[in-house]
Amino acid sequence: MRAPDTELPIVCDSVSVLVGKLAILDRLSVTFGDGAPTALIGPNGSGKTTLIRIAMGLIAPTSGRVTWGGREAVPPLRRAILFQRPVMLRRSVVGNLRYALAAAGIARDRREARVIELLALVGLAGFEDRPARKLSGGEQQRLALARALARDPAVLFLDEPTASLDPAATKSVEDVIRAVSARGIKVVTATHDLGQARRLAGEIVLLHRGRAIETAPTERFFMQPQTEEARRFVAGDLLL
């Protein structure tokens, strides 16, 4: 059973998340529409991870409204997320994938074909029976990506997908993200790596202190930043 393609656009309307008196997100409004990947950038603590969790539907905002394709409270049937530190289930590589496929409601007889397809996509063919927790960091990241793609998502959230990877592993993960985007899946990625944001994204959202300061196409954001914060951030001066 697949949900109809009603995930997009994802609209966060004046969303706040309070922890005690601290505002992690502060009346933030942003829209993720169809098209090229969106990169969320901003200093540590600016609210990137929280925004991703809100948009994924994992947590509810303290105030404000989130809609998916115009509806509220849509279960995450066609949304997927790659956490910053994904947790491998204590199973083999195929065990992890089969689990995700079952959780996504893929019929048993169609799962094996999807396993082969997904492993090929993330470059893990030949790793089938390896214990997932004994893979390297980059391999785990790609397996988590395959797992996220198992439900054939309309939108894929990535939370600093390459933060702890070496350059070669980073490149292989970025290649997969490009392939995913090319399939028409909307990608929203939080990243600290401005080079990565430029390479992957068609649109940049700069967060600062829980607010969306500037939203712009990638080229314009880096060439002609409109706000003082954006200028300072690109220059490496905006720390908090």
Partner: peptide
């Protein structure tokens, strides 16, 4: 505590969570 985010993201219901945790532990 380790699995909760992943299972929530995969939209696994309460019974499925218990089965998964018992199996993986």
């Amino acid at each position: 505590l380790e699995y909760r985010d992943e299972l929530a993201a995969m939209n696994v219901g309460p019974a499925g969570r218990i089965a998964t945790l018992v199996y993986d532990a």
